[in-house]
Simulated assay, not measured.
Amino acid sequence: MDEDLLNRAHALAEESFLAGSGPGGQNANKVATEVQLRVNIYALRLEPTVFARLRDLAGSKLTAAGDLLITARQHRTQEANRQAARVKLAEILEAAHRAPKKRAKTRVNRVGKVQRLKSKKARGTIKANRGKPSRSDW
């Protein structure tokens, strides 16, 4: 991910401050320390693959209008929460730019197949022997 995208995201971000429910005691009731960062992901102009990954990563943090909502309230000060929200935004964007690793297909060898079938047969025998005995077993 390039620094330009991060700067653009920070420039597009709208911050609002709420009275958070985090630490701070009485101060939390009087001062709006919780930060809500709102970034429109359509305005970021991302590549389609990165955009799709970002949409998947955002999950419920994404609104119908395409706004990514990030909240931070773990700190006692507004500035610390503001920094935490920006770090969260950077982490999400960084994760969206990382392509998932391709899964290498594996094959079970002949011995493995035989062992699996043998264990299935043994398990089936155990299950077949359960239950009520028939009259012929007396």
Rank of each mutant, 00 (worst) to 15 (best):
R110L: 08
Q78S: 08
T77M: 09
K101S: 10
A90K: 11
F51T: 03
Q83H: 11
V108Q: 10
L54G: 05
R116Q: 08
L69Y: 01
A65L: 05
I92K: 01
R76W: 04
A72G: 10
V50Y: 02
L69T: 01
D67A: 03
I41D: 03
A122R: 07
G66T: 06
R82H: 09
K121A: 15
K61V: 00
R76F: 04
L89P: 11
A80Y: 06
K105A: 15
R103G: 05
I70C: 07
L68P: 02
H75S: 07
T71F: 01
A90T: 09
R98S: 07
L68V: 07
L93Q: 06
Y42G: 15
A99W: 05
D67C: 02
K61P: 01
L62P: 01
N81S: 13
K102C: 02
T125R: 14
L54I: 04
L68W: 02
A85Q: 03
A65D: 10
I70E: 04
A52D: 10
H75V: 03
R73A: 09
K121I: 14
L44Q: 12
I70D: 02
I92T: 06
A58R: 04
G112P: 02
K113I: 08
R73K: 15
T125A: 15
A99F: 05
A122Q: 11
K121W: 07
E47Y: 04
R86V: 01
L117I: 08
G66I: 05
A122C: 02
T49G: 04
R98T: 12
N81I: 12
S60D: 09
R107H: 14
E94F: 05
E79S: 15
A58D: 00
K121V: 13
D56V: 00
Q115A: 11
R73T: 07
R73P: 00
R73L: 05
A80R: 14
A52M: 04
R82L: 15
V87F: 00
K120S: 10
R53P: 04
S60R: 06
N81M: 12
R107D: 14
Q83V: 08
R116M: 08
Q78T: 11
L117E: 12
Q78A: 05
I126T: 12
K105Q: 12
L57T: 00
R107C: 09
A58I: 02
T71Y: 02
V108A: 11
A84L: 03
R123K: 14
V108G: 03
R73S: 14
Y42V: 13
